[in-house]
């Protein structure tokens, strides 16, 4: 039986964006999506700040909700010092959230499904929080790897474990986001491919049967919407946690 071949991974392939200009400056379709995300964030802020009403309208309420959500996350997780990192955390959170969300739309590229992108973000968070740790505590930051209240003979075992778990932070941070987004988009494409295959293989009966994968895709859409918000939140709150460790060392 010869059905159409479905390539569920093709959606992740990078192509030059912006027409000929993108080819010249290596500006890919994923960068287009990033630019779109940044522009949408700036636009929402511009619209939300137009009225500056005492009783906010919808867009203003949305921006204020985002602002207070991330601000509370910073203050609750890092403490009052967290306000210094609030713009950074907000930028990372809003960028990933918008990237996840616009990736859900057909023909839009989900740049958070690229391990290079998520690993770069995670490495930046890792290097930045480590830098904050050394900037705040100097060389005393090394004592972060020595758990307190542990008998001395256990330390040779525990210190390497602590160091390994610390070094694995960027890996888990990046792979979590990358794997979630990739898996969701692959599943969507696979179920959509089922519909084409069923119709091609079984004719009219197959067309009726493809209601099942269609329903699954509808349910998946809801799940992916949840995952898009949740993974952005997880990335942001873990960034806050790492910064908390760097500032407070415990």
């Amino acid at each position: 039986m010869a059905g159409p071949t479905i390539n569920a991974l093709e959606q992740f392939s990078l192509t030059p964006g912006l027409g000929g200009l993108g080819k010249a400056i290596d500006f890919s379709n994923s960068n287009e999506a990033m630019l779109a995300a940044a522009v949408i964030i700036a636009l929402i802020f511009g619209l939300g700040l137009k009225a500056r009403a005492l009783v906010p309208g919808r867009t203003q309420a949305l921006v204020e909700l985002l602002y207070e959500f991330v601000r509370n996350m910073c203050v609750d997780t890092i403490g009052e010092e967290g306000l210094r990192f609030f713009p950074l955390v907000f930028t990372i959170f809003s960028f990933i959230l918008l990237g996840n969300l616009i990736g859900l739309f057909p023909y839009f590229f989900a740049f958070t499904s690229h391990i290079a992108v998520t690993l770069a973000l995670a490495l930046f968070v890792f290097v930045f929080s480590t830098g904050v740790g050394f900037y705040t505590h100097g060389f005393k930051f090394f004592t972060f790897f020595v758990p307190s209240g542990v008998p001395g003979w256990l330390l040779p075992l525990l210190v390497p474990i602590e160091i390994i778990s610390y070094l694995s932070r960027p890996v888990s941070l990046s792979v979590r986001l990358f794997a979630n987004m990739t898996a969701g988009h692959v599943m969507w494409e696979v179920f959509a491919g089922f519909m084409l295959l069923l119709t091609a293989s079984f004719g009219i009966f197959g067309a009726f049967a493809s209601v099942v994968p269609l329903g699954l895709n509808v349910a998946l859409a809801a799940l992916e919407l949840l995952v898009a918000g949740l993974q952005a939140y997880v990335f942001a709150i873990l960034t806050c946690l790492y910064l908390h460790d760097a500032v407070h060392m415990h």
Binding site: L14, D26, N31, M34, F111, H114, A116, V117, A120
Partner: peptide, 9 residues
């Protein structure tokens, strides 16, 4: 493009 997208990001 795989690595260049990071630079543009």
């Amino acid at each position: 493009l795989t690595l260049d997208q990071v630079g543009w990001m």
